[in-house]
Amino acid sequence: MDYLIEVFRQSAGLLFASAPYIIFGLVVSGLLRVFLNPNLVSRHLGHGRFSSVFKAAFLGIPIPLCSCSVLPAAVTLKKQGANNGATTAFLISTPESGVDSIAVSWALLDPIMAVARPVAAFAAASAAGIAENLFGSSRVEQPAKPDLSCPVDGCCTGEDCSPEEHRKHHTLLEKLRAGVRFAFGEVWGDMVGWFFIGLIIAGLVVALLPPDLLGKYLGGGIGSMLIMLAAGIPIYICATASTPIAAALILQGVSPGAALVFLLAGPATNITSLTVLFGVLGKRAAVIYLSVIAVSAVVFGLAVDAIYNALGLNGTALLGKAAEAFPLWIGWISAGALVIFSVKPLSAAIKAKFSKNSGEGSCSCHGCCSDHAPNRIMDHMPKNPH
């Protein structure tokens, strides 16, 4: 019983510390959804072997999508004119980072990790995208017409009215409301189950494992990085949910660099998404995707440990200091709000789990596999023979 109480106490503490930052990240994600102009995607991501990749990698950094739900988003980019390298870059940078995960990294980890995470994601995405454009198919693809449908309520397709005319259809307040609904509905609904699972795992790690056990084997060095890489690649966990687990690992003696490997590899890869990637991008692109993630995660993990050692910093000592910027009552209110927003998607997920028909298949990705999403993705993505 004492162990259960300690697990709850540790998990609740992480929730209170991270809740204000999660809400901030969700709000920003909703604003991106409403105000991001699809014309910009076609204009900037469809041309250039290098510039399009850098722009796609940068675009993916703030968007909070998991490794499964990023696939439909990548299809949209492709349909809006993004080339293969830009699409690959977006597929890597988006699940590895996000405004919500960056904010939570600042709260639960420390400023170095909060900066290293998006920087590593950008570098890995850029390397993979450039490799795909340089060594991929030389066939020139005509950019598709951008999807200009209204993101607020679908009032028009963007073809039957000009952008100038459509700007008059919705007030700023209506756009903000639509963005908030998207953030706390679709975005939070996709990650909420995995976030609470991450909190529970983090609580178990801190409460049940001896402090020196993980530090003995994962305290730094190439061996630690490879172990975390092997653990992170096959599992499914979103960027936000992986953060409290990383915080618990560091608290138990795991080096910040090894934790960073988990933060990069876990959200960007899992068995389901890799299987779909082989189908939609081809074997060559999928191998590039996985290889770049593995190499970059280890390289940046070693680099982060070197930075901590050079500065004489201890990852455990810095852990969670940023969360102290908010008064305790803000953490309580934010945590309460998140719990309230979580009731509907969690109950829907539990109900769907127990009411599955015998003919329906299982899915490892919460909220992003309805209507057989992988099949829909493959139907719309051009097949790559390589």
Rank of each mutant, 00 (worst) to 15 (best):
L204D: 02
L204C: 10
V205G: 02
V205N: 05
V205K: 03
V205C: 01
V205D: 05
V206K: 15
V206E: 13
A207Q: 04
A207K: 04
A207Y: 01
A207C: 03
L208H: 01
L208D: 05
L209W: 13
L209K: 10
P210G: 09
P210H: 03
P210D: 08
P210S: 09
P211A: 13
P211S: 12
P211G: 05
L213W: 12
L213Q: 10
L213A: 13
L214S: 01
L214P: 11
L214F: 07
L214E: 09
L214H: 10
G215E: 13
K216R: 14
Y217D: 01
Y217S: 13
Y217G: 05
G219D: 05
G219N: 04
G219M: 11
G220Q: 06
G220F: 07
G221A: 02
G221H: 01
G223M: 13
S224F: 08
S224I: 06
M225F: 00
M225N: 04
M225D: 03
M225C: 03
L226P: 12
L226H: 03
L226N: 12
L226K: 09
I227N: 11
M228H: 02
M228D: 06
M228R: 04
M228E: 14
M228C: 13
M228A: 06
L229K: 00
L229T: 01
A231G: 06
A231Y: 06
A231V: 11
A231E: 08
A231F: 12
G232N: 00
G232Y: 04
I233D: 06
I233S: 02
I233N: 11
I233G: 02
I233M: 15
P234E: 12
P234K: 11
P234T: 08
P234L: 12
I235L: 15
I235S: 14
Y236W: 11
Y236S: 07
Y236N: 05
I237W: 02
I237Y: 02
I237M: 15
I237A: 00
I237L: 12
C238T: 15
C238L: 14
C238A: 07
A239M: 04
A239K: 01
A239V: 05
